[in-house]
């Protein structure tokens, strides 16, 4: 449900999404440091492929989004990374429409930024356990906020989010749990081997 197809949303919502995404990408690219380019590309690839990982949930299947992890690892650079990955998903896999690309990118990148802010707040102190807790919360928050933003985009377009759709929020509970665990694992590894990757200033030897 995170990938909205074309022909569903109203023009003002589309325009707003486009504007927010353009602004976010401009800011993200301006803040993108030379040294962070490979990292951004790797996480963009991870995001691109993550949506292919399906989990059976009852009679259906849900897929990973991983925008929380992308946000935690990239900060503002998550905007261009997510936009590029979404564009490729739309063109190559047919996930989501091209006209709604701005809205889809906004719905996944804004939660990524908030996940980043949450994680940064938890990790600032240099306490490993607290940082991992922040990572888990950020991973879950990314999915939850995306679901809420998708619901909001539909509601603002005059589409009532009916009972079946409300249940899809529940279908995303396992996705949230899996992404939280995934983000904790990834951040745990990074804190051990390469804490500077996460872009949080911490004294030498912390997070041990």
């Amino acid at each position: 449900m995170a990938h909205i197809p074309d022909g569903v949303l109203s023009a003002p919502v589309l325009a707003a999404g486009m504007a927010v995404t353009l602004g976010g990408c401009a800011l993200g690219l301006r803040k993108l440091d030379h040294d962070k380019i490979p990292q951004t590309a790797v996480l963009s690839s991870v995001f691109f492929v993550a949506s292919l990982v399906h989990f059976p949930v009852g009679p259906t299947s849900v897929h990973l989004i991983l925008n929380g992890l992308v946000g935690v690892a990239l900060g503002w650079a998550a905007f261009p990374a997510i936009l590029v990955a979404l564009l490729l998903q739309a063109v190559l896999f047919g996930f989501g429409g091209l006209v709604v690309l701005g809205v889809n990118a906004m719905n996944m990148a804004i939660p990524a930024l908030l996940s980043y802010a949450l994680f940064a707040a938890f990790a600032r102190g240099g306490n490993r356990k607290l940082a991992l807790l922040g990572a888990g919360l950020a991973g879950g928050l990314g999915v939850m906020l995306t679901a809420i933003m998708v619901a909001g985009s539909l509601a603002l377009s005059g589409k009532e989010f009916d009972a079946a759709a409300k249940l899809t929020l529940f279908a995303h509970l396992p996705v949230m749990a899996i992404e939280a665990a995934f983000t904790v694992a990834a951040v745990g590894l990074l804190l051990r081997v390469k804490p500077e990757f996460l872009g949080i200033a911490a004294p030498e030897g912390s997070y041990a």
Binding site: H3, L167, A177
Partner: peptide, 21 residues
Amino acid sequence: MLRAATILTALCVAAPASAHK
């Protein structure tokens, strides 16, 4: 972890499809 995942999966048995397309 596995048990938690199983419980969550069981909880969502009645959920409708929410795939990409």
